[in-house]
């Protein structure tokens, strides 16, 4: 009788194990899919156009009527490092050449540190970003280094586990300050660029 009882208990356990296995999943099976996790990185190469949207004259308190700048060529090498599943911090080494009405060429090198918030919509990723930095500007023999505020968003399509292709719409705000305050202006720019990104 006692052995029959034991057999009965074992049979119940045997029957219950598969159910238990389903009700109490292993850690691997239970983890939701995440596009990124802490320690991941994205290294991206970006090419595209840089548009001068406006120039603000703080002394006049108004925007100038025309930026006198043509669409330029923009490029960037960027890296962001994921601090957790959603947040990343990184920076850009970027540059742009912009032609002007009087046939001059403005070179602009916006260097920035920025936060990125990644929203995973597998296989797409939306990554709004904002940051600070500096813009090195050169126009003929005039050179100046100015603060830079950058914000915008990237839209990635994760083609493979390692490679994504992205569309970036980023805005630069570059206030220029001079000893002669009459020369102060703030430039507003937009980058419309395409990226190829490698997931590290």
């Amino acid at each position: 009788m006692r052995s029959a009882y034991i057999v009965f208990i074992l049979a119940l356990v045997a029957l219950a194990l598969p159910l238990a296995a389903q009700d109490i999943p292993t850690p691997i099976a239970s983890s939701p899919y995440v596009a990124f996790e802490k320690g991941d990185g994205i290294l991206s190469l970006t090419l595209g156009t840089k548009l001068a949207l406006a120039i603000y004259d703080p002394e006049a308190g108004s925007f100038v009527s025309d930026t006198n700048m043509y669409p330029g060529f923009a490029f960037a090498l960027s890296y962001v490092h994921f601090l957790n599943d959603n947040w990343a911090f990184g920076g850009d080494l970027a540059g742009a050449f912009i032609g002007t009405l009087a046939e001059r060429r403005l070179f602009m090198a916006p260097l920035s540190f920025r936060f990125v918030r990644a929203f995973n919509l597998d296989p797409f990723i939306i990554a709004p970003t904002a940051g600070l930095g500096m813009a090195i500007l050169s126009l003929g023999e005039d050179k100046h280094i100015d603060p830079l505020f950058k914000f915008g968003s990237s839209f990635y399509w994760r083609a493979t586990g390692d490679i994504s292709y992205g569309l970036n719409l980023l805005f630069d705000i570059v206030p220029q300050f001079y000893d002669d305050s009459a020369q102060n202006r703030t430039g507003f720019f937009m980058d419309a660029t395409l990226s190829v990104a490698y997931h590290l």
Binding site: N68, L139, D180
Partner: peptide, 12 residues
């Protein structure tokens, strides 16, 4: 690195 002319001011 002030110059005699503001870069954006000059372009504008």
């Amino acid at each position: 690195t002030d110059g005699p002319v503001g870069i954006f001011a000059s372009i504008a």
